[in-house]
Computed example of a mutant assay.
Amino acid sequence: MKKYVLIFSIVISMLFISVIPVFGEEKSTDNSDGNLSLAPNAKSAILIERDTGKLLFDKNANEKLPPASMTKVMTLLLIMEALDQGNLKYDEIIRVSERAASMGGSQVFLEAGEEMSVEDLLKGVAIASGNDASVALAERIAGSEDAFVTKMNDKVKELNLKNTKFQNSTGLPAEDHYSTAYDMAIIAKELLKYETITEYTSIYEDYLRKGEKNEFWLVNTNKLVKFYPGVDGLKTGFTNEAKYCLTATAKKNDMRVIAVVMGAETTKERNATVSQMLDYAFNQFDTKKLFEKDQIITNLQLLKAENKNIDIVASQSISVIHGKGESTENINTEVHLNKEIDLPLKRGDQVGKLIVKNGEEVLSETPLTVEQNIEKASYFTLFKRSLQKLVKSR
């Protein structure tokens, strides 16, 4: 009898043990690899490769949550766009408004009427998550923070993001201010097209007003830039409602990934989760670089342009991602230029796309752009070309 009781007890124990993992699994939305243990302590998370946008892992990635100071990823994107377009200069001096100086939360303690360069204000945002620096730059770019927020939400629409809405440039608590892990990853992907941003987000410590009486020590809120090799950005976040959040990026060899974690209970859990996600990416995948950002892909002759020989460049770096040890022999690329191109063109305007394929399977499509402004040809230039064509035809 004791023998049967013992066997029965062992069987019941085995059944109980086998059931535990099933109930303990974290549910994930569209988790491409089925690895459900990467972010057990976060409300939502996502891991993507930057160049291709390939989803490597996600957990509740489309759940709307408060992004806290990760909002500044969008703020930084609009700042970098303004710098790239020449509407803002690094050495330009900005006078700080009373409103900007009055911002609470994380700040670099700007004073109303103080003057500071765009570059130093950018450091205040990128390193120390300064709400005051964010508003000062927002007011300079758009005239007011409200107008800047309109630009932020216009960019959300341009990126075709469905679950993000901003009410301020800082991430301070506000009603109807939300985003998702997926949307934050896409905004970060867009920001990283401006590769110089990591020259600021990777700084661990620096100073504002160095050598002056009111010198301020900047320390990066993202400790992984110091403690995880390859991490060079991007933005942390915390409020009582949002808990601990982080949009991080790291590069190893030619591979750059973006990891987003939202709603972790502690900084330790947040950083450990992001580290685990990055480990997974770099241990399981490799990338093959095809083209660098701004690399010339092809040339185009536009007879109605002032300078008819036009260089067409990659709008961002282009890669393919594959599992460790997988072959990339069947990778090929195709250039498709627009049939009709209207002049004038501004630097960065799209004139085609580069398609990357694995055999016949389309892996990615990347915009091809012009690297400089293209003006319409003057009447004199058109007349001269007509004469040259006439002479050649004789």
Rank of each mutant, 00 (worst) to 15 (best):
Q85W: 01
V108Q: 02
L77T: 15
R99K: 14
K155W: 05
D91Y: 11
F166N: 05
V96T: 03
Q167V: 10
A185K: 11
M152T: 13
V149C: 07
Y182P: 00
M80E: 13
D120C: 08
M80Y: 15
F166L: 07
I186R: 12
G143N: 08
A142C: 11
D176L: 06
R99P: 00
E92W: 00
A133G: 08
M80L: 12
S102I: 02
L83T: 14
I127T: 05
V96D: 09
L78E: 12
A100H: 08
E81S: 00
D91R: 06
G105L: 02
V135N: 06
L110I: 07
H177L: 08
S134K: 00
E92S: 06
K89E: 15
E145P: 11
G105I: 00
L77P: 10
K157W: 02
T150P: 00
L161I: 08
S134A: 15
L76K: 02
L78F: 11
E92T: 06
Q167C: 09
L137R: 05
V73N: 09
G105N: 02
T180W: 10
N153M: 02
S102D: 03
M74Y: 03
R95F: 00
M74Q: 05
E114Y: 01
Y90W: 11
I127P: 09
E81L: 09
Y90C: 00
S129W: 00
D176G: 13
A112W: 03
Y90Q: 01
M184I: 13
N163W: 01
G171M: 11
H177I: 08
M74S: 06
A112M: 05
S97N: 02
L77V: 12
E81R: 13
G124N: 09
T180G: 07
K151C: 05
A101L: 07
M74N: 13
A174S: 15
L161G: 03
S102C: 01
A82E: 12
K162R: 14
Y178H: 12
P173D: 15
S97T: 14
N163H: 15
N160V: 09
V135C: 01
L77E: 11
N160R: 14
K151N: 13
S102L: 01
S134L: 04
N160G: 05
G86I: 10
A138N: 01
K123Y: 08
K155T: 04
L88F: 03
T71H: 10
K72N: 06
L78A: 10
Y90H: 02
I94P: 04
V73L: 04
D154C: 01
V118N: 04
K89H: 12
S102P: 00
Y178L: 08
E98W: 09
I187W: 07
T150I: 15
A181S: 15
M74C: 08
D146S: 14
E111G: 01
Y182T: 01
A126K: 02
N153Y: 12
P173W: 04
G104I: 10
T75I: 05
K157Y: 11
F109Q: 11
